[in-house]
Design a protein around this nucleic acid. Structure first.
Length: 400
DNA sequence: TCTGGGGTCCTAGGACCC
DNA sequence: TCTGGGGTCCTAGGACCC
């Protein structure tokens, strides 16, 4: 999809059309640009750029908050259109998908005709622009859709992959970022064509396994990892995480702990939604100077309970936070799913079961009344008064 | 410039096992 | 006594993508 977040915002507020628009937050906030309209891009604004920088480059831009639920909703509509066109669909992200249209010639005609038909259907059904790349590999389809933007269609005829790729900057290859680009430049490799001419052995020596994949990519081949799965194959999440950057750095233990409690709940909830139990829990801590550490711990049985997640994360936090040091970001990452029917420890079974039922009720309450409706006590400091000698009953304070 | 949040994949070292 | 080789699991960090 073209400028997806911006285009969805324009559907909600047509006055944004034709103007420089930056999605991501207020210009003086901590944060980065999620998406910029083509008008804003003319000023050098692009995604991942700090909002404050975007403001300096383009102060007249309209800055809007992102609305993830809106984007998910429209992503669903996009999926519907694609699914109706061809059953072999794979959403690669919220605004990007692969379709296998092998054998659809009798239905839609030759590739270019099929793509234009899909392009029109997308516009009619969603009022959004997209670009389509057609090729014999995912890699080339993706690059050609980038080259087709905005609002275009591009077909790379089979056999012409190398010729199509050769004049492009190495940076256009998915997986080649800032660092790899710099490393390649150091060898005088600037274009994909330069890469294709090199010896595979040389690339493997210099860049390891990645170098070998790179050699294949330079010739338009899908290779490795996700590229080797069938289109439409459902792989499920491999990790679930939530993190939070404070609007101002803090060394306040109570605030840090309550943030960890809330993150534990968010992670626990997602695990229960996916019916997953995590065996590895990881704490992420970023200090004021942006130095970042991660500390993980694995448990034998796995968990999906907020309280257990919080307990593990608290232990990691207590052992690793340099007390008094200002914190910029906290994060919790869950991975390594417990497989199949786990054996319950008999002693804890009753307690587990009661927590599981309690949290199922809490999830339903959040569905109905919003996320703030219910939470762990540790996450609600400042909302409810804690039980103290001055307030032995633990009566709620003024704010509820 | 002053750097989000949610992911995937890869590397490398160490513990541990046979 | 003076140190093998292969495998798996765990942890930490980093590049990259949208």
């Amino acid at each position: 999809m073209d400028a997806f977040f911006v285009s969805v915002e324009e559907l909600y507020d047509p006055s944004l059309k034709g103007k420089p628009v930056v999605v991501g937050g207020r210009p003086n906030e901590r944060g980065v640009v999620s998406a910029a309209s083509y008008e804003a891009r003319k000023f050098g604004v692009h995604s991942a750029m700090p909002l404050r920088t975007a403001y300096k480059l383009c102060p007249q831009a309209i800055f809007v908050e992102g609305h993830p639920t809106r984007y998910r909703e429209y992503s669903g509509k996009v999926y519907e259109v694609l699914q109706a066109f061809s059953p072999l669909v794979e959403m690669a992200s919220v605004d990007e998908a692969y379709l296998d249209i092998t054998g659809s010639e009798r239905l839609y005609g030759p590739p270019l005709k099929a793509a234009h038909l899909l392009h029109d259907r997308m516009k009619a059904a969603t009022n959004l622009n997209c670009s389509i790349g057609i090729a014999a590999s995912r890699l080339v389809a993706k690059i050609s859709s980038d080259q087709a933007k905005p609002n275009g269609v591009l077909w790379v005829i089979p056999g012409r992959e190398s010729a199509f790729l050769a004049p492009l900057d190495v940076r256009k290859v998915p997986g080649v970022g800032k660092v790899t680009e710099k490393n390649l430049h150091a060898f005088g490799i600037r274009k994909v064509g330069d890469l294709a001419q090199l010896d595979d052995v040389f690339l493997e020596e210099k860049f390891g396994k990645w170098g070998l994949a790179l050699a294949g990519k330079s010739r338009g081949l899908d290779a490795g990892g996700w590229y080797d799965t069938e289109i439409g194959e459902d792989t499920g999440p491999k990790s679930i995480s939530h993190e939070h950057t404070f609007s101002e750095d803090t060394a306040d233990r109570a605030q840090l702990e309550s943030t960890l409690a809330k993150l534990s709940e968010m992670v626990g909830r997602r695990l229960r939604e996916h019916a997953l139990k995590a065996r590895t829990l990881q704490l992420k801590l970023r200090y004021s100077d942006f130095s970042t550490i991660t500390r993980a711990h694995s448990i034998p049985r796995g968990t999906q309970l907020d309280t257990e997640i919080y307990q593990e994360i608290r232990a990691l936090f207590d052992a690793n936070w340099k007390a008094g040091a200002s914190v910029r970001l906290l994060g919790i990452h869950a991975s390594s799913w417990a497989d199949g029917e786990e054996q319950m420890d008999l002693l804890g079974e009753d307690r587990h079961e009661r927590w599981r039922k309690t949290l199922a009720v809490a999830d339903r309450m959040r569905d109905k009344y919003g996320d703030a409706a219910v939470g762990l006590a540790a996450g609600m400091r400042g909302t409810f008064r804690e039980r103290t000698h001055e307030n032995p009953a633990g009566l709620p304070g003024k704010k509820k």
